[in-house]
């Protein structure tokens, strides 16, 4: 029993179809409970008031925005090395999800930033990097759409993802250097922030548990979306292959 068995498209579709309903349900449950808990059963934060509650959307979306790209990088590498079609298609399926997550992170950030910083947008390094990440998603998706031959498209987008990852990291460093910003550090998983020794930037426990629930929910939602979309891509590929077969046979 190896993980590569699921690289067979047929096996992939049949097995994911079995777990998908559970995934949808679990993610809806986590996000629903997390949001209701977070919005209605936790107090307002001392300095930020009720505005802080947007973290239940902002933080999970931002985490997924970055990690989706990492996932695409891994699946692209798997495609380039092992030539499993499902892997390349999973990267293709994940890209729009990652792009939407980036958009959600940017939009919720703007809505949060308006009352807190007094502006919808600032050229803060974190915000700028997310905007740049959005541009990378845009280019990646556009390249997939532009190329006719599926294998060529998979190869070229994989290379773009590979090279793009290096340049995205460089951009992240570059914008940090270019402008020190307003945004607080990512404080969710810093031990001091959680236990509360770092009083400046701590995320207190009341907010922490519903937030964790939302993060888990978003991750489950992401997995479900990617599996579902990969299944769709596989079927589209199959149709394309069958049509090509017809043409050859004719």
């Amino acid at each position: 029993m190896s993980i590569w068995e699921y690289a067979n498209p047929k096996k992939f579709i049949t097995s994911t179809e079995r777990v998908l309903p559970a995934l949808w349900a679990a993610s809806a449950l986590c996000i629903g409970v997390g949001l209701i808990w977070g919005f209605f059963f936790t107090g307002d934060e001392a300095r930020q008031g009720a505005t802080v509650k947007i973290i239940y959307l902002h933080v999970p979306a931002a985490m997924l925005a970055i990690n989706t790209w990492v996932m695409m990088l891994v699946t692209s590498l798997v495609w380039l090395v092992r030539r499993h079609h499902v892997s390349a298609l999973a990267a293709r399926a994940a890209a729009p999800v990652g792009m939407v997550m980036t958009l959600i992170a940017l939009a919720t950030g703007a809505i949060w930033g308006q009352p807190m910083w007094g502006t919808w947008w600032a050229w803060d390094p974190r915000l700028t990097s997310f905007l740049i990440l959005f541009l990378f998603y845009l280019g990646y998706i556009a390249l997939w759409e532009a190329i006719e031959d599926p294998d060529t498209a998979a190869d070229l987008t994989s290379f773009l993802c590979l090279v793009g990852s290096v340049f995205a990291l460089l951009s992240r460093y570059a914008v940090n250097f270019w402008n020190q910003g307003l945004h607080q550090g990512a404080s969710i998983f810093r031990a001091e922030a959680v236990i509360g020794t770092d009083t400046e930037e701590k995320v207190s426990n009341i907010f922490f548990y519903p937030l964790m629930l939302c993060i888990v929910g978003f991750v489950l939602l992401f997995v479900a979306l990617v599996l579902y979309r990969t299944g769709t891509e596989i079927r589209a590929r199959r149709i394309k292959a069958l049509m090509a077969r017809e043409r050859v046979a004719a």
Partner: peptide, 27 residues
């Protein structure tokens, strides 16, 4: 090289290349 096989590759190429240009531009 990425877009050489495409008929109307020019605009797409700009979209692909510009993000890659960012670090060079910034520094």
């Amino acid at each position: 090289a990425l877009t050489v096989g495409l008929k109307r590759g020019g605009l797409l190429m700009s979209l692909l290349v510009m993000p890659l240009y960012l670090p060079t531009l910034i520094f």
